[in-house]
């Protein structure tokens, strides 16, 4: 899976030429923008927290080797980073692992959910069970399209296997947990802030151009470019939410 040619297929493509976009250190619409370049304007504690986040990737301590491999493959499909230079990919699994190892929890739990630790361990079993039942391979060895299908079946709340696991754990709530953890890990990283043009810590400097949408002096102008999801991905398939699906987006009917 890791060979260069397969990686290339996973990148977003230019919609006009169909050619995969080139690898970049910093994807997104804000070329040259760097939150870390603003670190002189943070207070010492903030700076140490964020530099630690960038420089000291936590080692895997909670997942075993197999679970780690499955989770890496899963997170690669939830938030694909194949357009990023490999040295600038955000280690999502390591942050989820750190949270589980240190048992940093929300402080509440749905009654139809086990603890976060148990949820991930059960889920890895479930990913594998679905992959084996449909494709007779480990999730890790499936191609991207098949992996997306497995994940989409969970997203849709009708996973074709591992029924006993989903009886112990709400499939919708697990999906929310997984996507929430991936997003939290990815978007707490300064490289993701650069990608989306987020200013990072606002203390103590703060913002001064608070009206009229004017950029701060240290921000850069947005430079948009066209792109499409890679052909093997299911993420570009349009699907109206709300009335169409009974389970997957509770409370979001007709809001999109």
């Amino acid at each position: 899976m890791s060979d260069v040619e397969t990686e290339r297929q996973h990148r977003p493509v230019d919609p006009n030429t169909g050619v995969p976009l080139s690898l970049v250190r910093q994807p997104g619409y804000y070329p040259g923008y760097s939150t870390l370049a603003q670190q002189a304007f943070w207070d010492a504690k903030t700076r140490s927290v964020i530099l630690h986040r960038v420089n000291d990737t936590p080692t895997i301590r909670f997942f075993n080797v197999h679970q780690e491999a499955v989770m890496k493959a899963v997170c690669d499909r939830i938030i694909p980073q194949h357009d990023r230079d490999p040295a600038y990919r955000i280690p999502i699994v390591n942050y989820i692992d750190e949270r589980l190892y240190e048992n940093q929890i929300d402080g509440y739990r749905y009654e139809n959910m086990p603890s976060d630790r148990d949820a991930y361990q059960l889920a890895v079993e479930a990913f594998e069970a679905i992959a084996q039942s449909h494709h007779e391979h480990s999730f890790v060895d499936l191609d991207a399209h098949a992996q997306d299908e497995v994940l989409k079946s969970i997203h849709d709340g009708n996973a074709p296997a591992a029924r006993e696991i989903w009886e112990r754990m709400s499939i919708q709530n697990f999906w929310k947990l997984l996507v929430g953890d991936c997003a939290a890990a990815y978007y707490s990283h300064p490289w993701a802030w650069d990608e989306i043009g987020f200013g990072g810590p606002a203390y103590p400097r703060g913002y001064m151009r608070v009206e009229g949408g004017e950029p701060e002096p240290w921000e850069v102008d947005e430079v948009r470019y066209e792109w499409q999801a890679p052909p093997d991905s299911l993420s570009d398939v349009y699907e109206p939410t709300g009335s169409g699906s009974e389970h997957s987006h509770p409370g979001q009917g007709a809001t999109h």
């Binding site: 103590p204 400097r205 703060g206 001064m208």
Partner: peptide, 15 residues
């Protein structure tokens, strides 16, 4: 006395 004080002169003069 603003957070950052004279270390962040421009923003603190503006704000």
């Amino acid at each position: 006395r603003k957070p950052g004080g004279w270390r962040i002169p421009i923003v603190n003069i503006v704000m």
